[in-house]
Design a protein around this nucleic acid. Structure first.
Lengths: 123, 123
DNA sequence: GCCGAGGTTATATGCGTGTGCATCTAATGT
DNA sequence: ACATTAGATGCACACGCATATAACCTCGGC
């Protein structure tokens, strides 16, 4: 009974912290850079890869997005010119996703906002 | 620089904990009880009020949902027979939301699942 | 004191968009 | 041939933003 109450309290704390940060992130990234949080995180994951490039499935593996949502996110980013998709020659089902220069640039700008929001709202 | 790295790490931790719990909650509440997480949280908030009843605005104030999303959530819950809406006689713009017996019952069932998921996935 | 115009508040709704699930297609592997 | 895997896509739905609607509130002029 005690443990259950603690659990609930802990969850409410988590919910509250998460929503506080996520809602501000979402809003400011959209407003200042035209990126959704998923867009930003996708760019961010790519940026941390060697050569800013990797396969969809690897990208998916450490993101909290369904495979279909990731597929569409990458499609959006490609349409905006921030990433490029290319076929794997060794497994022709596969798709490589790679940051473009514009993508790196946008990510750098948005990163500043991202950090500022964290600094302000993550307690 | 140090501080920034810490901030990012902290945020990733938060993201990861939140998504781990929220995705399981969402799935299991839906599967076992036909409730979305927002549905459940709305019932839960109502349950913690005197007489399981309160005005939309008060309900909104401690939930992480936009006013419009809450309005639709309550509409869904009413359609399912878990809450009832009624006009305030003293402020006729206002709407009271009140749990029905079916709502209390469904909440009680779902609560068990909720707790179980927290116990399993909240570390 | 009473009245009506103009602002404000509570809730609902139109709209565009992002999501997950199920499914489709095409390439691989066995 | 048959099952499996990578990624894309149809679909239904929940969300937030902007706006609509209706009730309430305030205040200056009478």
């Amino acid at each position: 009974m005690e443990a259950e109450l603690t659990l609930i309290k802990q969850w409410h704390g988590l919910l509250s912290s998460y929503n506080e940060v996520a809602s501000h992130l979402e809003r400011e990234l959209q407003e200042l850079h035209g990126l959704s949080l998923s867009d930003f995180e996708t760019l961010d994951r790519l940026r941390s890869r060697e050569h800013d490039k990797c396969r969809m499935q690897h990208l998916a593996s450490d993101m909290y997005l369904s495979q279909s949502a990731l597929s569409r996110t990458v499609a959006r980013l490609e349409k905006s010119g921030f990433v490029e998709r290319s076929l794997c020659q060794d497994d022709r089902r596969g798709v490589y996703v790679e940051l473009t220069d514009a993508g790196r640039e946008r990510h750098a700008e948005a990163s500043a906002t991202h950090l500022a929001v964290l600094a302000e709202h993550l307690k």
